[in-house]
């Protein structure tokens, strides 16, 4: 046993104030409606409950004001039944951050667009860049010819000639190369060639 049993008994004899009949009626009316089987009170029902409480509170305030007309009226002027809402600070902060990021990006895009937009003074066609540069001097740097195939077509008699000639066909790949000594740039052109050669044949 503790030393407080007498005090506890005294406290239990002290009865809490009896709730108003209005509260019992309100709860009884609420219990008449079908309960939700699927969990918490949400949406319109919760809002309705809270709105009812808010309205009653403001009505009480108004009555108090009528009883004491020289007192200040809350909320500035008139009855303003505001639906109580819980501010979701996390969502608010996230939304603000997203909006700020969007504005920053949008500003950057606008600046870029402004940079791209030609001004009136600059609308005159600019002189070609190539004209201001020194003329390039490409000097021949080399020629290569690679014969990869030779064939002998035999003796032929060209028109108007009594002596026969040997016709030799050769196929090759020729490459021409130029070089700019100033910049070291080079240009190379490569193409296939076919050459036919007539070689006189002695008739001894």
């Amino acid at each position: 046993m503790n030393d407080f049993s007498e005090l506890e008994g005294e406290l239990k004899r002290l009865r809490p104030a009896v709730p108003s009949a209005d509260l019992m009626t309100r709860v009884e009316q609420a219990l008449q409606q079908p309960p939700l089987a699927d969990g918490p009170v949400r949406g319109a029902q919760a809002a309705s409950l809270q709105f009812g409480a808010a309205c009653r509170k403001h009505l009480r305030t108004l009555r108090a004001h009528v009883a004491n007309p020289f007192g200040k009226l809350p909320n500035g002027a008139g009855w303003q039944p505001a639906l109580p809402r819980r501010v979701n600070w996390f969502a608010l902060g996230l939304g603000t951050a997203a909006a700020a990021a969007f504005l920053i990006l949008a500003r950057v895009d606008v600046d870029r667009a402004r940079e791209k937009k030609p001004t009136l003074a600059a609308s005159t066609p600019a002189a070609p860049q190539i004209a201001s540069q020194p003329a390039r001097t490409l000097l021949p740097d080399g020629v290569t010819r690679v014969v990869y195939n030779t064939s002998d077509d035999g003796l032929v008699f060209p028109s108007g000639s009594a002596a026969p000639v040997r016709r030799v066909r050769s196929r090759s790949q020729e490459t021409l190369q130029w070089k700019d000594p100033g910049t070291g740039a080079s240009l190379r052109v490569s193409y296939p060639t076919e050459e036919i050669e007539f070689i006189p044949v002695s008739g001894q």
């Binding site: 509260l23 709860v27 309960p35 918490p40 009170v41 509170k57």
Partner: peptide
Amino acid sequence: ADAEDIVQEAFVRFWRR
């Protein structure tokens, strides 16, 4: 009155769930 509103809301919510 505020206390009664709170108790009503709590009890009705408790009952509905």
